[in-house]
Design a protein around this nucleic acid. Structure first.
Lengths: 137, 137
DNA sequence: CAGGATCCTGACGGATACTG
DNA sequence: CAGTATCCGTCAGGATCCTG
């Protein structure tokens, strides 16, 4: 039935030289991927462990994201045919290398988020971007 | 007013240790930010130049993304009060540093996209990612 | 326990029309 | 030229119920 066709975006307008970046950003840019691989970076975990560790995620998104990650070869899924089912997820080498790349981004974020926040506040005073954000009483 | 309040997501569930990364990823994870800063990385450009360079972008998204980038201090906006209006956008130091971080991600993407694509194709054959669940016996 | 299937909402973003 | 304002479709993603 394929309830969600993952992306299906109209990407025919792309200048092909940065198509790879988009593909990766579409994956790590979503709401949960980074959190999941960060959690899995600590080691092999089962479904319920992930659900507990990644606070606020729904089963739907957890399952979906895990499938995408497995499909891309970033994690492995091991199902043990036991009476209480047990499934364990683990990062692959590829997944760990992605984790390193994400860590680099995290480093940049940690180094500059203050600066960004300051700029954002300053812009608010200046009137730049005039987000005003929810003035609705 | 305030047609879009940017995020307004229910982010109260976050374990705060990776909140910065999410903030950055929410910015570069959108459809156009990376393309715009990549384009601006070549030098100072005007609105219409950007619209021409970033193929397929609408005025709405161009203006909106530029405002966000300006608000965060990643680009500067210079308006010349001439008869045909002229506005130029340019990366700030902060913006250039982000560009470097993005380039790192792009490097990873370029290095591994083949592997990912291969895994994806293999998964399609195996049935992983769809309902099959592939319980390897 | 580990998901699958569905319904529904709100955000994202395209198309279009208008303005200084 | 450089935007602004508005309408509208699409889709990510949460909540909920069901199953092997």
């Amino acid at each position: 039935m394929a309830p969600e066709r993952q992306i299906a975006g109209p990407c025919q307008t792309w200048p092909e030289d940065s198509a790879f970046i988009r593909e990766v950003l579409d994956r790590i840019g979503d709401k949960w991927t980074v959190l999941i691989i960060s959690t899995l970076n600590t080691g092999k975990l089962r479904y319920s462990d992930l659900q507990a560790s990644v606070t606020g995620i729904s089963q739907r998104m957890l399952t979906q994201t895990l499938k995408h990650l497995e499909r891309d070869g970033l994690i492995t899924r091991t199902a043990y045919p036991e009476v209480p089912p047990r499934v364990e997820y683990e990062l692959t080498e590829l997944g760990r290398s992605l984790m390193e790349a994400v860590k680099a981004m995290a480093g940049w974020a940690a180094a500059h988020h203050r600066e960004i926040a300051a700029n954002r506040t300053a812009s608010e005073l200046t009137g730049v971007g005039r987000g005003k954000t929810a003035v609705s009483s």
